[in-house]
Each structure stands twice: as structure tokens, then as C-alpha cells.
């Protein structure tokens, strides 16, 4: 069989004169071209397969490098100390030969700090994202929706360093001053500032995913509710939102995963000291802040200090992966229900 390429090339010939074409379509010609085709198609095919395999290789690379370095870390620091210890002082050593020079690596304050900031972020983004999704999906005219939706999604495209700047140089000082004015002690590296700004960043994650699921709730359910004499908000609250709940939950999970893994905002606006507190006005530190702190500046490889960063990275990877997988499962189940 001739391929399209050859037909294209042969076409002017075909129009003028059938003679040479018969040579193009001869059995011998086919065989030769098939051989050539196989010669270049096989490697190209291989290349395509390799490219797809790179995605797997990346995951494997991430897992292996995190595991390998973490295992070395856990040779020096016990897993239980890391997971349950309450003291995080990775660089207390004054002299290398000092006893206890390796510092203490109890990561609980980092976990709670990360949790505190993420919860603040979700408390900010959850209501704002959900209600703006409701407004855009149920109330707004098409015109408003076409303008506002892309504008809100810009928030997701703003580089995180800009949020960091906003949190560290605008929000945090204002909060501190406001606190001073009201007589509340608010740290200039408060969890509140970092968390609230992070919340702004994840608004679009909540709103666009929720918008999608709200829009996919069948119109017949809305009609049924309206035809019973329900108002629009009663319809939304009692029928639309319960039906869309799985999708909204998974939007929140994805937003949470994004908040936990976010780095720049907290590096710039949250503190470095590992305080075990639930006070949003206090300074806390997070997993990502510590990873950056441990790995930037002077470092010696294989010291527990740098290895600890990989152990923290492993925790981060596992937690966000679980959140993502759960979120995707939930949303998939939901899609199956209504498609």
C-alpha cells in the first residue's frame, strides 16, 4: 500500500502520465519502502514510549531519592523521635565535637505549624471560593461570568513569590500594627498572615472545581425543586450543594494539598522557629520552610541536618499524594454518577 506521503509526491506525476506511477506502485517499490518505513518508524516509536516512561521515571526518581536520603537520616535519628518528638532544633551545635551536636529532630511542631497555616488558608479560601462558585454558577448572568471567572483564575497564575511579598511586606505588618492598636500581640511573622494570603492563592482551586461540579448537577433537579415552590437559595442549599458535595470535598482536598506543599509564601512570611502552638497570631514554621532553611546556605551533605530535609520532603510527598489520590477518586466516583 502506498502511504500518503508518497501519494502526495506522486500526484503531479499521476496527473501527467500514468507511466512512472506504475513503477511507484510496483511490488518491488512497496517492499523497499516498507523496509525504509520500518527503519525510521521503529526508533521514533521507541522514542515516544521512552518519553511517556519519563513520567514514571520522574516519580520513581522522586521516591528513590527521598527514600534513600531519608533512610540515611533514620540511621542517625530514630523514626519515633522524628515523628513524635516535640523539639525541633536542627542547628543547635556550637562546635562539631560537642555532644548532641546533631541537634534535635522532633518534627511535630513543623506538622502542627503546617496544619495551622493550612487550616487558616482553607478557612479563607473555602467560603470565598465556594460562595463565588455558587454566585458564578447559579446567579451571575453569562456576561458577568465570562468576565469574572477568568479574572478570579488569574489568582491561580500569580507566581507564589508575589503572594510571599504581599504576605510579608503588606499583610503581616498591617496585621501586627492592627494587633498593636487593638492590644493583641500579633507576631510580624504570624501564622494568620501567611495562612490568609495562602488562602487567597487557593481560592481559584476551590472556586473553579466547585463551579464545575455545581454546573454538572443536572438541571432537572433544580427544576424539580423550583417547581415545588422553593426559592433559588433553598434549591441551591438543599438540592444542588448536597448533590455536588463530593466534588466540593475533593476541591477542598486538592486545595489542602496545595496549601501544605506551598513554599514561597511561608518561606517569606512565616517564621523559622518551631513553636508548638495553635495560636494564629503567633509565629510558626512549616515543613517547607524548614526544608528550605536546611538546604540553603552552607551545607555539608550527609549531615543529619541536610538529610532531615529529605525526610521532611518524604512526609510532604506522601501526605500530598494521599490527598490528591483521595480527591481524584472522589471526583471520579461523582462523575460516574452523573455522566
Amino acid at each position: 500500500m502506498p502511504n500518503s506521503d508518497q501519494v502526495q509526491r506522486a500526484y503531479p506525476v499521476l496527473v501527467k502520465d500514468w507511466g512512472p506511477a506504475s513503477a511507484v506502485f510496483s511490488d518491488q517499490g512497496f517492499a523497499r519502502r516498507r523496509w525504509w518505513r520500518a527503519l525510521w518508524e521503529q526508533p521514533v516509536y521507541g522514542l515516544l514510549v521512552l518519553s511517556s516512561a519519563l513520567a514514571i521515571a520522574t516519580t520513581v526518581g522522586i521516591i528513590l531519592s527521598l527514600l534513600f536520603e531519608s533512610l540515611q537520616f533514620f540511621h542517625q535519628v530514630s523514626l519515633t523521635e522524628f515523628l513524635f518528638g516535640l523539639e525541633w532544633h536542627p542547628q543547635t551545635a556550637l562546635r562539631a565535637d560537642q555532644i548532641g551536636s546533631s541537634g534535635s529532630f522532633g518534627a511535630v511542631p513543623l506538622f502542627t505549624g503546617t496544619l495551622l497555616i493550612s487550616v487558616i488558608a482553607l478557612l479563607t479560601a473555602g467560603p470565598i471560593g465556594l460562595f463565588s462558585a455558587i454566585f458564578l454558577a447559579e446567579y451571575a448572568t453569562k456576561h458577568i461570568r465570562d468576565v469574572v471567572k477568568p479574572l478570579l483564575e488569574i489568582l491561580a497564575g500569580v507566581p507564589t513569590v508575589i503572594y510571599g511579598f504581599f504576605a510579608a511586606l503588606i499583610v503581616a505588618p498591617s496585621l501586627r500594627d492592627a494587633g498593636g492598636f487593638l492590644g493583641v500581640g500579633i507576631s510580624s511573622e504570624s501564622a494568620l498572615a501567611a495562612g490568609a494570603v495562602m488562602g487567597v492563592m487557593i481560592i481559584p482551586i476551590v472556586s473553579s472545581l466547585s463551579d464545575d461540579v455545581i454546573a454538572s448537577v443536572p438541571g432537572s433537579l433544580r427544576e424539580a425543586s423550583l417547581s415545588l415552590g422553593a426559592t433559588q437559595s433553598e434549591t441551591i442549599r438543599n438540592v444542588v450543594l448536597p448533590a455536588a458535595l463530593p466534588g466540593i470535598v475533593s476541591a477542598m482536598l486538592l486545595a489542602a494539598s496545595r496549601a501544605i506543599g506551598e513554599t514561597m509564601i511561608v518561606v517569606m512570611a512565616a517564621g523559622l522557629s518551631a513553636n508548638l502552638t495553635a495560636n494564629p497570631f503567633a509565629a510558626v514554621t512549616t515543613i517547607t520552610v524548614q526544608i528550605v532553611g536546611l538546604l540553603t546556605g552552607d551545607q555539608e551533605f550527609d549531615s543529619p541536618k541536610t538529610l532531615a530535609a529529605f525526610a521532611l520532603g518524604l512526609v510532604l510527598f506522601v501526605v500530598t499524594l494521599c490527598l490528591n489520590i483521595t480527591a481524584l477518586r472522589v471526583v471520579k466516583k461523582y462523575r460516574e454518577k452523573y455522566d
Binding site: 432537572s220 424539580a224 415545588l228 415552590g229 438540592v239
Partner: peptide, 26 residues
């Protein structure tokens, strides 16, 4: 008005709730 004039649609469209809640909704 809609409370006085009920409607039944082409395709059955029960709410994704229990049978009781479906009827109790209105």
C-alpha cells in the same frame, strides 16, 4: 404560585435523598 401548581417532569427526577426526604422536601 408554584406551591399551588405542582409539576411532574418528563424524566423522573427524584432528589439524591431518601424517599422520605424527597416527599418531605416541599
Amino acid at each position: 404560585l408554584r406551591a399551588r401548581v405542582g409539576m411532574v417532569f418528563q424524566k423522573p427526577n427524584p432528589f439524591p435523598k431518601s424517599i422520605y426526604e424527597n416527599v418531605a422536601y416541599g
